[in-house]
Design a binder for these strands. Structure first.
Lengths: 121, 121
DNA sequence: AATATTACTCTACAAATGTAGAATATAAAT
DNA sequence: ATTTATATTCTACATTTGTAGAGTAATATT
């Protein structure tokens, strides 16, 4: 089962922190911070969904993500690609290059990167 | 307000058809087709959200999208980028290039494309 | 004209989501 | 030991989503 938007946001924090207690997580949120119980609910749901686990340390828990950001993201984009571009990554790439406002520098970096990838093949 | 997953799917059909009557839309769905009323509900919601409009033709309506696929998609990806890559499109691009399995040919096409974009700047 | 078909609206309802209070447990501070 | 702060669970509730039946209107078919 997929994560909801809010849960995804929480995941971002977990990915960033790698592991975190409730208080660490709360710290990540800007004002107005959500209620502790809100986060707790989310964490519970995410745990149920199998995305998060934790180690119990005395009274409280140290939460950590069970899925790597890259993996999660990968699935995500692939869904996007499937949905919008008949499953063609290259079609997506082309679209992406045209439609996002990359600066000249960024485009050049990207080209270098692609060159490298090509060499690897 | 954003479209839900199912609504997005319906949008895909509308984008493809450009304009369509209920029956045309239903045709697009594979078996088991959803109930007509289901589609009708979705269309209504999408109309309320401002994504779809229609011309009345006697008894029924010819629906059409109010937003271009490219525009919708663009926002979509930008959200993704914002969420996962601290708003850095280039970071996203790099990730994307590495993580999706583009063939050598596709990569080369992509590079050409990027070259073109660079020239435009 | 009578009947069958189709489109649309209204209503409904279960599941998922966003949000958080109340109650409880536990640890930390005094 | 008593008070205080914090974490967790339970419960709750409004909103959104997925799905569709019942009812109604209009059109096409016989």
């Amino acid at each position: 089962m997929k994560l909801s938007k809010t849960e995804e946001q929480l995941m971002q924090h977990l990915w960033k922190l790698e592991k975190a207690f409730m208080k660490d997580i709360l710290e990540q949120y800007p004002e107005p911070k959500p209620a502790t119980t809100t986060i707790a609910t989310l964490l519970k749901r995410m745990t149920d969904k199998g995305y998060v686990s934790y180690k119990t340390f005395g009274k409280s828990r140290e939460y950590y993500p069970l899925i790597k950001k890259a993996d999660y993201f990968s699935k995500h984009v692939n869904g996007l690609i499937k949905n919008f571009f008949n499953d063609s990554a290259s079609q997506f790439a082309s679209f992406f290059t045209k439609e996002t406002n990359l600066t000249k520098e960024e485009l050049e970096d990207l080209r270098k990167l692609i060159d490298n990838e090509i060499k690897k093949k």
